[in-house]
Design a binder for these strands. Structure first.
Length: 218
DNA sequence: TGCCAGGCCGGGT
DNA sequence: ACCCGGCATGGC
């Protein structure tokens, strides 16, 4: 497929999904730090399980980097138990909290003033933050236009032959960054639309989706 | 009742 | 530079 065709297809997928799902207004949270916590907790985990964990943290008044960083690991892991992998995730929450305290004394508004590329590099050095979590933090917590590539994105793009089955994270992200747009709202919406489409029509065991709004492209 | 969910790390090749 | 096992709870 030529580059021009890929560009058209990327846009077409967006248009069809938006027509079907509408404006999703994704990832609402009460604070940037809550977004970061959610980004860690939702790693390979259904969002419903994450919400309970965040509710626990809020109820205990520990939804702040200073509190997370100083809490005993056993206590923290119990609070986030519902999100799965709670021991490793407790450690990851501690790591990212320490990073925030170190980098901006806990003031995320200050962190937002740094440039996107530099921030991404720093985030990737934090143990427990990989490319998807870093990009989720960049766009949803730190206001940086970034396309987040997740398992659904890869599956849907591969299914529509935009990329190969073995495409890397950076390859897929570069494709969207160069052929779609760098507008923050649109990138947010695209990610949300792909996840929604994946949940409804493109699960692992059901690659054939009769009612998928993207069916017309196949 | 297995299978899957908005990944990432560490050790091995 | 990849490949793989481990990490774990809750919903369908």
């Amino acid at each position: 497929m030529g580059m021009t065709d890929k560009k058209k297809k990327i846009k077409k997928i967006y248009v069809l999904l938006e027509k079907y799902f509408g404006d999703l207004k994704w990832w609402p949270a009460e604070s940037s730090f809550e977004v970061i916590v959610g980004a860690i907790l939702t790693q390979n985990t259904a969002w419903g399980n994450v919400e309970k964990a965040i509710a626990n943290l809020r109820q205990k008044k520990v939804l702040a980097p200073g509190r997370i960083a100083t809490m005993k690991p056993a206590k923290l892991s119990q609070l986030i138990r519902s999100s799965g992998y709670h021991r490793v995730k407790a450690q990851r929450l501690r790591e990212v909290s320490r990073f925030i305290l170190r980098e901006c004394k806990g003031k995320l508004s200050r962190l937002k003033k740094q440039d996107a590329a530099g921030l991404r590099g720093k985030l990737l050095q934090v143990k427990g933050i990989g490319p998807e979590t870093a990009d989720s933090i960049l766009i949803y917590a730190l206001d940086k236009p970034t396309f987040v590539v997740d398992a659904y994105t890869k599956r849907i793009f591969a299914r529509h032959t935009l990329v190969g089955e073995d495409a890397s994270y950076d390859e897929i992200q570069s494709l969207v960054h160069s052929f779609f747009t760098m507008d923050k709202k649109a990138l947010n919406q695209y990610h949300a639309l792909l996840v929604e489409a994946g949940k409804h029509f493109c699960k692992k065991r059901t690659p054939l989706c009769e009612d998928c709004p993207l069916k017309v492209l196949l």
